[in-house]
Nucleic acid binder design. Structure first.
Lengths: 168, 168
DNA sequence: TTGCGTCCCGTGAAATCCCGTGTCATCCCT
DNA sequence: AGGGATGACACGGGATTTCACGGGACGCAA
């Protein structure tokens, strides 16, 4: 069972705010939820973060446990710990994938990221990011523009540089 | 067991989007998948990249692990790392070669590279590139044009330069 | 009532499984 | 060396299952 997300998908958002989690992503949420078994609903965590986020981030249960432990290692009361707690615990909520494989997004979250009638999922390691499709297109262009040596037609792997000799 | 691809092939694409992976290439995917054994399906990773890509790139599992590790060595949050993650994790997907030795290309990917009823495979080290045959013809010319010191009639190996004495 | 969330079911399209067939290369037995 | 048997391979088709998605019915709280 895959533990990592890979790929992207665009799905419809219906009038009730329901979003189908594409099946291949659903398998990852199921496999990374320690309490899940066939027939049950998989759990996940929706992080909506600070005000300027234009997307939601969906974490598996396992991934969020790692994050929680990382936060717990920081000094109690430190500015960093307070910030991370605010984002990953304050501005987040638990959710479940329903029997039809869909996630119901409360209208509040839909409004925050400007979601209308479609949603774009894109993998990011052990989490998924959820965008309004048009907003993601802008984000994609921004990511490319930030790497000046990346020209259209070039092989992106050139950014990795020369491999060190200890690989093989 | 060969670990590198060599050669090119043209195959049919049927109405369901199925593409026969030529047997010699299939052997490489099998040998470069750590979990593969006789009778099982070999896995691979389809990278479809940014909007301007007109081809798909098919990586072996081993090759993609190297790339993932290379990406992981870059500073978290750096522009280069974000771009590479977006391409190799966001714009890619896991796939399997089916029991008949074929790969099923989802409709979306076929449309992206303009694939109709034939596909052209060409080797690229530890990956294969897959093109609509007509589109590849133009690409071959473009590759030559990008190396200004390569003149028609010249020996391509001259591009390798003189090896330094301490190298094998 | 009105709006909102949940449960359950229907449907069309796509993906998957499982089968057959023609062709070509390889092997083996004269 | 010739010729037939064998098996691998590319390719097609039908049947079945999965999946995304829409809608109706019910309960609940403002």
């Amino acid at each position: 069972m895959a533990r990592q997300f890979r790929g992207s998908e665009e799905v419809k958002v219906d009038a009730k705010g329901r979003v189908s989690i594409p099946a291949k992503f659903r398998r990852v949420f199921e496999g990374s939820d320690p309490d899940w078994e066939a027939g049950r609903r998989a759990r996940l965590i929706i992080v909506y973060g600070t005000l300027d986020w234009q997307h939601l981030q969906l974490f598996t249960v396992d991934a969020m446990e790692d994050i929680d432990q990382g936060i717990a290692r920081l000094p109690r009361g430190s500015a960093e710990r307070n910030l991370l707690e605010s984002i990953y615990q304050g501005h987040a909520e638990d959710a479940e994938i329903d029997a039809d494989g869909r996630l119901v997004l409360p209208q509040k979250l839909r409004e925050k990221i400007g979601l209308s009638d479609a949603a774009f999922f894109i993998s990011a390691g052990d989490s998924l990011k959820l965008w309004e499709p048009a907003a993601f297109a802008g984000e994609a262009r921004r990511i490319e523009a930030l790497v000046p040596e990346f020209k259209p037609g070039a092989d992106p792997l050139s950014l990795l540089g020369t491999p060190t000799p200890d690989e093989g």
